[in-house]
Amino acid sequence: MTLDPSPSQTVGPFFAFGLPFDGGGDVVPPGTAGAISLHGTVRDGAGAPVPDALLEFWQAGPDGRIAARAGSLVRDGRSFTGFARVPTDRSGDYVIRTLRPGPVAGSAEAPHLAVTVFARGLLHHLFTRVYFPNHTEANAADPLLSALPEERAATLMAIPDGWFGGPGYRFDVRLQGPGETVFLDLISEAGAVR
């Protein structure tokens, strides 16, 4: 049996009271050893900030383990669930606080965060990835990064830019136009799944 999927529709402008939740960007609590901020700006094809986007992040822990643990929506302050959800603010900016992922055992890919982008005006979400520059060897061997032209691969690389509160990385999302982020059509062995 193969059922046809339910079509996607835009998240619209009014998701702010439906989807975001308190602490959505706090994958780890403030003061956690090794915590980083990952932040950036979502921009449209004209370079204007997108103030009504929603980003979700999914990642392994620093030990490379993928958590299968409830409690992302109501965080207990000590369990690592690996999931973040944040809306952009008036300036199109977002920030999450997390730990850098470690290599997942058996994975061909370098450590990365999986990202989903939703926005008003976006009829179907977009998938992308955040990689980290310090995994030089793993990044060079990564099937996606190594298949992309250098300037396109660069759109998936977090840029270290520590801030007053500690270590930080910038990851901007450009929906369209110059420097457009690489968005993914993710397939499994049996075919496309996007």
Binding site: G45, W58, R69, L73, G121, F127, Q176
Partner: peptide, 30 residues
């Protein structure tokens, strides 16, 4: 609103990573 918010480049086809083959878990506490 799709005019400036839809990518102009085609999506890049990539195999889902082990991470992307899993999903967050939610439960009674959520």
């Amino acid at each position: 609103s799709t005019a400036l918010r839809s990518p102009s480049q085609p999506l890049v086809v990539a195999p889902a990573s082990l991470l992307e083959q899993t999903a967050p878990v939610f439960g009674a506490k959520d």
